[in-house]
């Protein structure tokens, strides 16, 4: 995405999102499944953090837990600290937390058609935000809906507010969801695989739109994705998740040039690059572990080419890298991995 070179994040401002030691456990009939096992996330205002992981890594569960969408009897969500835009979620009543959803923190889902109400017009659905959160009149709400549709680039917005979701294409629906997500200028926008269901030409439009709004409104973006390409296009920082834990965090350039975790290193070697076709991809052996079927040691150890005895026994902590102030990695062999990237 085209964007001014320096990140617009401000180090001194309070973080748009700060989560410490997030744990999510699903209590199922076959036992407890720890889907997220201790995740820390900090995102500054105006910053885009990509949470990168495969299916089952816990990235969507993390996002939904932050939003408070897992508040159900069979799900156990624990956090040491949870701040959104300077407000402490843990000190709040459930009702006050609910009011933050849609205003201070918002979410864009992968499947825009099922995220929109099929029997309400787009104008009513966007307008509802202003009527509920801002107490706007019907007429004001409609006006703001038109403005928002124009903001996200929907042609003939004034006519189209009367249309229903099925009358829009996939890319347009995703634009509408994004319009609703930025309507009340949230501190944090969570985008959960926002372009996975879209075609590549439309994906480029949507990523560009999210990036433009982030710049204009100073919103912090948590982008959940499985696509290394998408993350490289828009993220300022990347957090790589594997089996319910973050295994590496890094500014975007460093991660792709010099991965610090063997999983990141292996992923980068396993994907074909459009500009550099090579004869053989270095496939990662095996498959990601099922949540709940993870041993005491490093979850990636069974698939890792660098694993030694210590990896099977001791869980590596996510620690800052020596000489790399903005990076962390959870691996007993980080030095080796960093060294290999240079050679």
């Amino acid at each position: 995405m085209a964007k001014p070179a320096p990140a617009t994040s401000d180090e001194r401002a309070p973080a748009a999102l700060e989560v410490r030691d997030l744990k999510v456990t699903f209590n199922t009939s076959t036992g407890a499944v720890p889907a997220v096992r201790g995740v820390d996330l900090v995102i500054r205002p105006g910053e885009t953090l990509a949470l990168l992981g495969e299916s089952g890594s816990g990235k969507s569960v993390t996002a939904r837990a932050i939003m408070g969408l897992h508040d159900q009897p069979h799900v156990d969500v624990r956090m040491e600290r949870a701040m959104v835009g300077g407000r402490d979620l843990l000190a709040m009543t459930p009702e006050n937390r609910r009011l933050l959803r849609g205003s201070a923190m918002t979410m864009v889902f992968q499947d825009a058609l099922s995220a929109l109400n099929p029997v309400l017009t787009i104008g009513d659905q966007i307008g509802e935000l202003f009527r509920v959160h801002r107490g706007a009149s019907r007429k004001e709400a409609r006006e703001r809906a038109v403005d928002l549709l124009e903001l996200v680039g929907i042609p003939a917005a004034r006519d189209r507010v009367r249309d229903y979701p099925h009358q829009f294409s996939g890319g347009m629906r995703q634009r509408i969801l994004i319009a609703m997500a930025v309507a009340l200028e949230p501190a944090l926008l969570i985008a959960d695989e926002p372009t996975t269901a879209l075609d590549v030409t439309v994906q480029a439009q949507i990523l560009r739109l999210i990036d433009r709004l982030r710049r204009e409104l100073g919103t912090a973006v948590l982008l959940i994705t499985h696509d290394l390409g998408v993350a490289a296009e828009v993220a300022d920082r990347i957090a790589v998740m594997y089996a319910g834990r973050i295994v590496e965090t890094s500014p975007v350039e460093d991660l792709y040039d010099r991965p610090a975790h063997p999983y990141t290193e292996a992923l980068l070697a396993a994907i074909p690059d459009l500009d550099r076709p090579s004869s053989e991809l270095l496939a990662i052996p095996g498959t990601p572990p099922r949540p709940g079927a993870v041993g005491a040691g490093c979850a990636f150890a069974p698939r890792c080419t660098r694993s030694t005895e210590i990896c099977a026994d001791r869980l590596p902590a996510l620690t800052p890298l020596v000489g790399h102030p903005h990076r962390t990695a959870a691996c007993h062999h980080t030095e080796e991995v960093l060294h290999a990237a240079v050679n």
């Binding site: 075609d199 439009q205 490289a232």
Partner: peptide, 26 residues
């Protein structure tokens, strides 16, 4: 050309390349 230019590239350095972004949907 548009398809190739829209495809995300897993290299942050490629971010500022010239791109053809198509308008609308198919």
């Amino acid at each position: 050309k548009a398809l190739l230019s829209a495809a995300p590239i897993p290299r942050p350095q490629a971010r500022h390349r010239e791109r053809v972004i198509l308008a609308g949907d198919p």
